[in-house]
Each structure stands twice: as structure tokens, then as C-alpha cells.
């Protein structure tokens, strides 16, 4: 049984990376900008469909889609944030506006690609079941790529926030927007760039999803149960936390699946979540007292 357990742990770890990439966008905008942007789910989906379309139409490796999806995601996020800035919405209103956007985006996706399943042909997409072995454990390549991206995003964001001027500006805005403005920080510009980054991350998650899953507009419904636990455990606005939380969620679900059956996996995940909320509400990875 331990072989199976090892495999479950490793796969859980890797898919946790994907979960992290899916969640970091919404976590950043919620934590730093106080905006609950459900449209991130649609952007993940759009990133996935864009990858499908680019890969299928041009008959190229799906990862090339990153070249298009990342800047497009950034742009979309920036535009949304500009909209939020202009309309000065609070958290509730941002939730509803983003929900309205989700409805519109889902509808557009459905009109273009229909509700039926789409997957990139295996002749064009080599990644679907691509793997290599380390000992007896298989490492699934699409998940490894996502994990790599998650690590990159986590480290990159962390460095950005701690070392760069931009990062300091973000932290200043989160702490106290008025004072930040007094010190000459352009809140709007910072927020727009941050939102662009966050959406670019979400869209990137979509690229990886397209390399190994079949797509239909409704698959985004299942992501709530993945993203929100990761966001909560990782701490709002904490990119490194998102990676850690993704890994915990992935591994816990994988181990539970092997030990007690797949039906128990989500229960275990959510119980961990509730325990974490009760004992460390700021998230497992955020220092006590920091935002």
C-alpha cells in the first residue's frame, strides 16, 4: 500500500501547485485591493479555452499559448481594476459586479465553444499523460509544470512585494491608503498593475488545465471548492501562502483518498480548513498581526 500512498502524496503535491496558481490571483486582489473578483474563475476558463483554440488552430504545442494568454490576462485584469477604481466600489459591490462579469463571460464562452467538451488532440498536446519516474513514483509533467509556475509566482511575488518599490507601494496601500497617497504613491496605478498581474496568474492556470483536462464551460463550477480553501488557508493576499495551502489541500485530499476513499477527501480538506480558520484565522502562512 505504501507505493500507492507515495504516489498519492507526490501527485497531491504537484496538483497543489496548480491549485495555487488558480487561487493566487483572487487571493491577491482580495487581500491587497479588498476586491472580491469572482471573474478570476472566468479568466482561468478563458485562459484554458484560449490555449485550446490557439493550440488546435495553429497546431502548436499548447504551452506556446502562454505568450498570448499572459499579456491578455494582464490587460483584462488591468481593465477590470480601472473599472473598479472609477466606480469606487466596496467589497459587496465588487462581488456583484464581478458576478455580473462572470455571467457575461460564461455566456460568451458558451456561444463560441458550445457547452460540449473540448480537448486538445493528443497529436498536438503531448502533455496529457506525459510523465517520468523517480523511483516507483510517477511525476506527471503537466502538474510539474504547473507546480513550477506556482513556485515561480510565489517567489516572484514575494520578492516583488518585499524588495521592489512597487511591492512596498502595495504594502503601503494595504496598510493605509491615505498615508500612502500622501507619500506620493499613485494608488490607482499600483492597484491596476497588481490586478493585471493577478489576472495573468489566473489565466496561466488555465493554460495548464488545458494541457491535461477536457474543457466545458461548467467545469469552473467545481473550482470554488478548490480555490476558496486554498485562499483561506494561504491567507488573503499571500502568494507564498497560496502555494503552501495548495500543497496541503492537494496532499491531504490525496492521502485521504487512499486511506479512506475518495469520498472522504473533500471532507478532510474542509475540516482542516475549519480547524485552520479557528486556530489561525489569518491563514497558516501569514505572520501573526500582519495583513
Amino acid at each position: 500500500m505504501s507505493d500507492v500512498l507515495n504516489q498519492a502524496i507526490v501527485s497531491g503535491l504537484l496538483i497543489g501547485g496548480l491549485y495555487a496558481v488558480m487561487s493566487v490571483g483572487i487571493s491577491l486582489t482580495w487581500g491587497a485591493l479588498r476586491i472580491i473578483n469572482l471573474a478570476h474563475f472566468s479568466f482561468i476558463l478563458l485562459g484554458a479555452y484560449a490555449t485550446y483554440q490557439i493550440s488546435t488552430s495553429l497546431e502548436i504545442d499548447p504551452l506556446f499559448a502562454l505568450l498570448v494568454v499572459i499579456p491578455a490576462g494582464f490587460l483584462a485584469g488591468a481593465i477590470m481594476q480601472i473599472f473598479f477604481e472609477l466606480t469606487k466600489v466596496d467589497e459587496f459591490q465588487s462581488l456583484i459586479i464581478s458576478f455580473g462579469s462572470v455571467i457575461i463571460l460564461q455566456s460568451i464562452i458558451r456561444t463560441i465553444w458550445t457547452a460540449d467538451f473540448r480537448r486538445i488532440d493528443r497529436d498536438i498536446n503531448p502533455y496529457e499523460s506525459m510523465s517520468f519516474f523517480v523511483g516507483d513514483v510517477a511525476i506527471q509533467v503537466p502538474l510539474l509544470l504547473a507546480f513550477g509556475a506556482a513556485v515561480g509566482i510565489a517567489l516572484g511575488t514575494s520578492l516583488l512585494l518585499s524588495r521592489s518599490y512597487f511591492g512596498k507601494a502595495v504594502r503601503a496601500i494595504v496598510d493605509d491608503p491615505q498615508i500612502a497617497r500622501a507619500y506620493g504613491i499613485d494608488n490607482r496605478r499600483v492597484a491596476v498593475v497588481l490586478s493585471g498581474l493577478a489576472t495573468a496568474f489566473s489565466a496561466t492556470a488555465g493554460v495548464f488545465i488545458a494541457t491535461f483536462q477536457s474543457l466545458s464551460p461548467s467545469i469552473s463550477l467545481g473550482w470554488f471548492g478548490i480555490v476558496f480553501p486554498v485562499v483561506i488557508l494561504g491567507g488573503l493576499g499571500n502568494a507564498v501562502g497560496a502555494l503552501g495551502a495548495g500543497v496541503i489541500v492537494g496532499v491531504a485530499a490525496g492521502v485521504a483518498s487512499v486511506q479512506w476513499g475518495p469520498l472522504s477527501a473533500s471532507l478532510v480538506t474542509f475540516l482542516i480548513l475549519i480547524a485552520a480558520l479557528l486556530f489561525r484565522p489569518q491563514g497558516l502562512f501569514t505572520r501573526q498581526g500582519s495583513s
Partner: peptide
């Protein structure tokens, strides 16, 4: 005899058990 929930996305644990 493995029962799995709707919307399962991580198939590796189940696959590992079946393969074993």
C-alpha cells in the same frame, strides 16, 4: 470498489490503487 465524488480532478490516487 472505489467510489469517487463528482468533479474529481486528481485521479492519481485512484489510478495508483487500480494499478496496484
Amino acid at each position: 470498489e472505489i467510489n469517487y465524488p463528482l468533479g474529481t480532478s486528481d485521479w492519481a490516487p485512484i489510478a495508483a490503487q487500480v494499478a496496484q
